[in-house]
Design a binder for these strands. Structure first.
Lengths: 134, 134
DNA sequence: CAGTATCCCAACGGATACTG
DNA sequence: CAGTATCCGTTGGGATACTG
């Protein structure tokens, strides 16, 4: 349920630190691993992908999570959904321009994560080491 | 996760799509709004901040969440923690070089969110509109 | 095939109270 | 001041079963 007074006077741009700032909630929506993977998969395809294709490529995602993730992305205008009304049905997903524009910052974050994974591992190692002296 | 040893170093790099890929979990850790805000606050300060100062600047964060967020960041080597052993104690947090390097991709994501907030609002509006024709 | 529905457990996260 | 501990409601997310 979105704010009833949507588009209301909130829109306090430039102030991410206000609890009322909607950007804050948005950050938590788009930063998840499932969104990140979905955008990546669809961006690499540069075209449409079917539900089952996506599930196959996003190894480990459950049917439920792929479903709710895609629904949310459609809602937010990140992907478009096209149904071929045959039996059995074929449903195709494609990034919108908006969704495509999200790939760049997400890719940066993904790359950071991959690049600095070893350092973070090491930091964790060191941390648990000294906190468990004997 | 049956793995009892704190954060199993599977280290299957290069394949974000493998369920075993640790980068996946990392993405969900660093992409949260609290991490994002903490990094931003500390990066803007370009120095140290005390616990209470951070809580004041990160409006709306609870004591608990700031605590667990900072603990996680210290464990991951993103921030360093310095205690002045006086009474009452003073604790200072500062970004490590690693943490500072995270600011760039996170800032990109934040900026994307702010920039495209209106479009996402509109998409949601349109969505709920057509799904609730009246 | 592409979902939806249900159950159920685990993690998130606020509120409050207590402590070195 | 800077936490920790506890309680507890909300959400995330897997497993399974069912349907158009």
């Amino acid at each position: 349920m979105t704010d009833s007074s949507a588009r209301g006077p909130v829109r306090s741009r430039g102030d991410l630190f206000s609890p009322a700032c909607p950007t804050r909630k948005l950050l938590d929506r788009i930063g998840t691993k499932w969104i990140s993977m979905a955008v990546k998969v669809l961006a690499e395809e540069a075209g449409e992908l079917r539900f089952s294709q996506m599930q196959r490529q996003m190894a480990g995602i459950s049917q439920k999570m792929l479903s709710v993730t895609l629904q949310g992305m459609v809602r937010d205008g990140l992907v478009s959904r096209r149904v071929e009304p045959v039996v059995p049905p074929r449903v195709f997903y494609r990034l919108t321009p908006l969704g495509l524009s999200l790939e760049e910052p997400l890719a940066a974050l993904r790359e950071w994560a991959e690049a600095h994974m070893p350092e973070i591992d090491d930091a964790n190692q060191r941390y648990t080491q000294e906190e468990t002296p004997a």
